Amino acid sequence: MDQDNLIEMVGVQKSYDGAHLVIPDLNLSIRRGEFLTLLGASGSGKTTTLMMLAGFENPTCGQIMMDGRPIQDVPAHQRGIGMVFQNYALFPHMTVAENLAYPLKMRGNDKTVTKDKVGRALDLVQLSAMAERKPAQLSGGQQQRVALARALVFEPELVLMDEPLGALDKNLREHMQFEIKQIHRQLGVTVVYVTHDQSEALTMSDRVAVFHDGRIEQLAPPAELYDRPSTAYIAAFIGENNGLDGVLTDSSLVLDGGLRVPLPGHGLLPGLRARAMVRPESVRLSKDLSVSVQARVADMAYLGDHTRLVARLDNGNTVVAKLTSGALPEDTSVGAPLVLGWEPEDMLVFPQGAAGF
């Protein structure tokens, strides 16, 4: 086992009914001190993977190693892993301090050590003044901080977080993303975080593992996932992408309906059916770009820092553009003609049969 890795999952499979594998063959290495997010739609296998790491589910076969030792047969309470759940799972009859002291008492810490560690954990999440309150007397954000402090109070090497911010409103959720990342940097603990929220994954993670049908479709840093997705599925799942389907020629993509889109240097065989994808922020109003298409305005929405434009091509395809505010003439209206363009390096091209297409 590589000493830089805290966790190794090798050949892990999981079946709940003995017939269908929800995790067919998982191989995953988790580096010490990293913030790794398991991202995917409902039923993709991300939560099952987390539950196997935690010890709440057993793999059907395969091996899970932590610090070079197999743990798949070790009970959850003996793995020394911190857990943070979406529903907080706090003891309602205990004070905040008592909630934090509980995992320390279960590990045999004396009162002096327990008091010291509880105090440091409360300072970490800025809740020292709330130590004697009950969970019901706290806001949702404060309860989440208590749950986080309880997962960290016994100084585990690994903390698992299962949709921990799902119950919070947007502003508080974004604030807690920042706080959790700051605490991670401060402590250097290894975090495995499960979410279906793409922006949350991109904001918080050192690396993201995108799950699809029980498999990791791509594992990469956020910028690589966004800028260089390995499959059409990833390109469509991470952020927003315009997809244009057609048949390749030497230097263009002939869309369904006959519209020809310049596609210089695509590197694929002419005659192949393919999908070209381009991000809305790469689409601009211009006749002078290498790739340009005639379109008409189908819809517009002013969003402050940018205008979201939906344009319809001659063949019926729609293309979304995120244009800087002021880029559109003030008198632009639905139905107005315009020319949209982008550069070849802003396009991704996937042949038919590639994952996700």
Rank of each mutant, 00 (worst) to 15 (best):
F237H: 06
G335I: 12
A76N: 03
M347F: 00
S251R: 11
V320K: 06
V349F: 05
K115P: 04
T49E: 04
T307P: 00
E281W: 03
G62F: 10
G141R: 03
A298W: 04
M161D: 08
L38I: 10
S230V: 13
R79A: 04
Y226L: 07
Q218A: 06
D346Y: 01
P264G: 07
V261A: 01
S199G: 05
Y226H: 14
G82R: 08
G82N: 14
R145N: 07
K105T: 08
L6F: 12
C61E: 13
N99H: 13
N242A: 02
A151S: 15
N87Q: 12
D123F: 07
D250T: 10
A129S: 14
R32I: 02
D67E: 14
D314V: 02
Q13I: 02
K170L: 14
F350H: 09
H184A: 05
E179T: 13
V159N: 02
L6C: 07
G45L: 08
A232H: 05
G188P: 12
P351G: 00
C61T: 12
G239F: 08
L38C: 01
I81K: 09
V84Q: 00
G45I: 12
A223Q: 15
Y302F: 14
S139C: 10
H20V: 13
L90T: 07
G68Q: 01
M65T: 04
A209C: 13
E98Y: 06
Q86S: 05
F56T: 11
F91I: 01
G335K: 12
S128Y: 02
K117D: 06
R145L: 03
V84S: 07
